[in-house]
Simulated scan of single mutants.
Amino acid sequence: MKSAEKKRSVIVGLFVLIGIIILLAGIFIIGGQQNRFGGAIKVTAIFDNAAGLKKGGNVWFSGVKVGTIREVNFTPASQVEIVMVINDESKEYIRKDAAAVISSEGFIGNKMIVIEGGSSDIPFVEDGDQLRAKEGNDTEAMMATLQVNNENLVAITNDVKALSERVRRGEGTIGAFFTDSLMAENMKAMLANLNQAALNSRKVSENLAAFSEKLNSEGGLAGDLLTDTTIFASLKSSMAQLEDITQNASLMTDNLSEATGKLKEDDNALGLLLNDEETAAQVKETMKNLEESTEKLNQNMEALQHNFLFRGFFRKQAKREEEEKQDSIKAAADINK
Rank of each mutant, 00 (worst) to 15 (best):
260 T>L: 10
292 E>R: 05
269 A>I: 12
57 G>K: 06
50 A>E: 01
301 M>G: 10
108 I>L: 10
331 A>C: 03
208 L>Q: 09
87 N>C: 11
25 A>I: 08
60 W>C: 10
252 M>C: 09
20 I>L: 05
255 N>Q: 12
1 M>R: 14
29 I>E: 13
31 G>M: 02
62 S>D: 15
337 K>H: 07
255 N>G: 11
87 N>A: 05
308 F>C: 11
28 F>C: 12
39 G>P: 14
140 E>K: 15
2 K>D: 10
142 M>G: 14
153 L>A: 15
322 E>R: 15
317 Q>R: 03
104 S>A: 15
168 R>H: 12
298 N>I: 09
158 N>R: 10
37 F>L: 07
225 L>E: 03
165 E>S: 10
213 E>W: 03
260 T>F: 06
111 K>T: 07
243 E>H: 07
294 T>Q: 15
39 G>L: 06
200 N>P: 05
170 G>W: 01
209 A>E: 01
89 E>K: 15
72 V>W: 00
257 S>T: 11
228 D>W: 00
128 G>V: 01
240 A>F: 00
134 K>C: 00
69 I>N: 02
112 M>T: 10
7 K>Q: 15
15 F>G: 15
82 I>W: 01
162 A>G: 04
100 A>H: 00
230 T>D: 11
164 S>R: 14
72 V>I: 10
63 G>T: 04
167 V>W: 00
303 A>I: 05
7 K>G: 14
50 A>S: 05
328 S>I: 01
309 L>I: 09
183 M>P: 04
179 T>Q: 09
252 M>H: 13
213 E>L: 08
178 F>W: 03
314 F>V: 02
48 D>W: 04
276 D>P: 11
176 A>D: 03
304 L>M: 12
227 T>S: 12
147 Q>N: 15
211 F>Q: 07
68 T>C: 09
30 I>F: 14
228 D>S: 06
115 I>N: 00
116 E>F: 05
223 G>I: 03
103 S>R: 08
178 F>C: 06
276 D>W: 03
73 N>L: 09
332 A>E: 03
221 L>W: 09
33 Q>S: 13
224 D>Q: 11
169 R>V: 09
150 N>L: 12
114 V>E: 00
162 A>K: 06
42 K>L: 02
10 V>S: 13
88 D>I: 04
75 T>W: 02
264 K>I: 04
75 T>F: 01
320 R>L: 06
148 V>R: 14
167 V>G: 02
308 F>L: 14
159 D>Y: 03
111 K>F: 00
42 K>I: 00
111 K>D: 01
122 I>T: 08
239 M>Y: 04
52 G>L: 00
306 H>M: 11
279 T>C: 13
272 L>E: 07
180 D>H: 02
296 K>R: 15
23 L>K: 08
79 Q>T: 08
316 K>P: 03
296 K>Q: 14
320 R>I: 12
246 T>A: 05
147 Q>W: 09
289 N>L: 12
193 N>K: 14
40 A>E: 01
45 A>R: 01
131 L>K: 05
58 N>G: 15
261 G>E: 02
159 D>F: 03
169 R>I: 10
156 I>Y: 07
46 I>W: 02
318 A>K: 09
87 N>E: 07
217 S>W: 00
65 K>I: 13
141 A>Q: 08
